[in-house]
Design a protein around this nucleic acid. Sequence first.
DNA 1: CATCGCAGTTAGGGGAATCTAACTATATAG
DNA 2: CTATATAGTTAGATTCCCCTAACTGCGATG
Lengths: 148, 148
Amino acid sequence: MEKLTFTMENYLEAIYELSSDGNGARISDIAERLSVTKASANSAMSTLSEKGLIINERYKEIFLTPSGREHAEFTSKKHQVIQEFFTKILKVDAVIANRDACAIEHVISNDSIYAMQEFILTEKLNHTTLNFRGIHCAKPGCHNAKRP
Amino acid sequence: MEKLTFTMENYLEAIYELSSDGNGARISDIAERLSVTKASANSAMSTLSEKGLIINERYKEIFLTPSGREHAEFTSKKHQVIQEFFTKILKVDAVIANRDACAIEHVISNDSIYAMQEFILTEKLNHTTLNFRGIHCAKPGCHNAKRP
DNA sequence: CATCGCAGTTAGGGGAATCTAACTATATAG
DNA sequence: CTATATAGTTAGATTCCCCTAACTGCGATG
């Protein structure tokens, strides 16, 4: 997978999220989502196009290539894991968790993402087990926890 | 507190960690620690100096101002919390946790840092309580957990 | 079918951070 | 005390990403 700057990773992710099946993304929407001008978004498209991550015909909608989609999906997945970890485990506000995820997704290691994912899974299992046995779970973040 | 780029935050942190009581930091050491050239480090010093975060006399050691120290301490503290959370709670390898902390410290919200800190504290309390009662703690990361 | 508005494009410029290469200052070893 | 190594500085170029301003293409509406 091609190495990308954080900025380009963000553009790619935006295209991914703005494309619905069959339809591509539009420059204006990408620019708005990332809070940059159309000129900036447009110039970023050239970069992504050169790297073979998107198909960008003049005045047409923008489509991801398979390679671009793969990359975008990976980034998006990382975002999702961080978001879930921060809200469900750390009990951070959803809006803030989203902002943090948006930044952290570009710099965090695969190992740490994997660890977060595992942690979430284990947490869920423990809930089930403990509740089934009728025991109060004292884990931070457990809905069945005893609170003062 | 003055708003800084991530890069400048890193320089400031490096100076903080390279200064031992009474002694300042040297350009060469800063450059080496951040894996940049002396020229780059030197030019960064002008920026930090203009912002009143360091004292930088030509050919002399570099010292933090109170404001610079405050900023550096805050960044360093964030680093420390992330590092501890990733290693102790998520069980991520120390070297990787350190790399991740180095990047995340510049982008994470205060809310999330606070949540991590709280989580670590709660975790410790639960250990003590559960162990005192002679109950097996099943939390991931608990040294007394039953493992298959 | 002319035109008007919006989407997209291009040109040009600026700031941040990096580099190399060449320079100057400082300090130490003989 | 001089020679030389090491530390620090400066100049100039490059890359990345952003901006504004001005332009072009396209399509809907009268």
